[in-house]
Design a protein around this nucleic acid. Sequence first.
RNA 1: GGGCUCGUGGCUUAGCUAGGAUAUAGCGCUGGCCUUCUAAGCCAGACGCCUGGGGUUCGAAUCCCCACGGGCCCGCCA
Length: 583
Amino acid sequence: MSLMDDFKAQVHAAVVEAIGDDSIQFPVEDSSMPGVDVAVPCFAMAKALKKAPQMISDELAGRIQPSGLIGSVVSAKGFLNFTVDASALVSNVLSEIVERQSEYAHKAPTGLTVNVEHTSTNPTGPIHVGRARNPIIGDTLARCLKRCGHDVVTEYYVNDVGRQVVVLTWGVNNVSDAEADEEREEHARTIGQNEKERDKTDHRLVANYRVANKRLEADENVKAEIADMLRRFEAGDAEVIDTVRHTAEIMLDGLRETLSAINVTLDRYTWESGYIADGTARNVVERLCESEYAGRTEDGACYVDLKDFGVQGKNTLFTFTRSDGTTLYTTRDLAYHLDKFTRADRIIDVLGEDQKLGSKQLCSALEILGSEKQPEPLFYAFVSLPEGKMSTRKGVVVYLDDLIDESVARAYQEISSRRSDMSEERMREIARIIGVGAIRYNIVRVQPEKQFVFKWEEALNFDGNSGPYVQYVHARTCSLLRKAGEFEKCTDASKLTDEYELKLVKVLSKYGDILDAAGNMKKVHLLPAYGHELASAFNQFYAYVSVLDAGDRRDARLTLVDCTRIVLADVLDCLGMGAPEEM
RNA sequence: GGGCUCGUGGCUUAGCUAGGAUAUAGCGCUGGCCUUCUAAGCCAGACGCCUGGGGUUCGAAUCCCCACGGGCCCGCCA
């Protein structure tokens, strides 16, 4: 319960009393009008009271005396406009932050375990920007949910089953280094540029994968070899399964390195092949076959008919085995979800929008299996390039590793041009924090369901609504506090009466609501917007109010600066961004 | 063909689930501000028939219907 909630409750009670009839419903809403905190529109009451809205608001305003948290009330064109008592707000918010420090606005433990599955890209190539939304949204959401009081587990589902990884495995074991080098050169000629040399497995093995695919098409013997590997894999041949898993593992090493560079670490890696090995996928098949929706094609492939489950389209059949009885991706995914349900109260899947139908089918099948819980999917639209959809094959692609390098280089250039006093090592360190922060902020600021066209000039924009803007304000607060030295914490509202101070406190008071919406409602894009609003409010304060040279208001202002620093640092951490103390 | 989704100044974007007053911010543009705490900053200004058309309502960017435009999906692939 925040102070603002208390305030709204008091407003509601005061209006009910003024009307003298508690059966009349009305909203108490945040107002966009300058100088107004919350408003009560009186239009809906007009019918019940048989009076014009303007008259109602005039009369009610006259009957309400400011008291408690209500600072003032005025009638305006059918609205009752309220302001919160500034003094109560300031002292309440600041003492709360001083007391709880980085825990400010975090919720009490709920005892619920929330599982967030994200990233889960096929371990057959590096992460490109088209998919970069996944780890960034997923990781940010997980951080928000922790602040909402949940126990959070993040998880990567590794697809080490199927044709793609088998082909890759063949390429890793049968393509020579010379062949791979040749492939890299040829590819560079095709796309007209050199791919950056990287000693990372995910980048290095792409050439093996490409050669394997080419040989698979051109050479009957290779085709037979790979088909044989697939057959043995399906049959449960431990040697093949282990080799494939090993390939996925070394590929993952590279992916993990990239993720770690953008401050994403996952708690758990779950292997798809595990659900074949332990028989749970098979168990799903048996249970689905017993359901009343089950059927079988002439060839023997099993399906359930989902037409009663709101699945649209001409084909409502959801196939879960091949005609030879082997399981399909979605069958294993069902086993995986059933497993996750035993480990968590709520499970969230961060998925590309291409998975929408698949996710719907999965949910329906879970219902058939009698599952009481359902996963909550969070879909994001793909990131494309101005020239179109990303394609590794056509070379129309920006790898996340390249984006990170560019962004960090750009940040280094900025910092070295303005800080001649800083050591080389320190500049490199801060450039990394800023470069990575800029990327995370830029990607998470847009609503996930909106299409996102990647543009270098926007990704590397460090002004205005950007990560570095927010980090810069954090550095400013730190700089002030460094210069100030020791000071006495002061939350005396009578020392903080300037309009910029009040504005800043109001923004600080909203943080809890933002965390709740960002986490529980899965609206992570609210967080960067909030960071910008807070940073902007501080910059205005900073421009007009002097802190270090403020006489008997110095301690109070420094306290406000420190509170801003605390909240800003938490916002940045929640976004997976570093909070530099200087830049 | 069917389903899902997005459409807000030149560009990017908030607000839409629970309809309210003058639609949020950023980039870019024009003009101002560093002999006071970091100018990655601050201030001022121009820029909008919220894709189009109907409907519901005292009131619609928001809800409903239709159209148009972009994206995604409709495998015994993963």
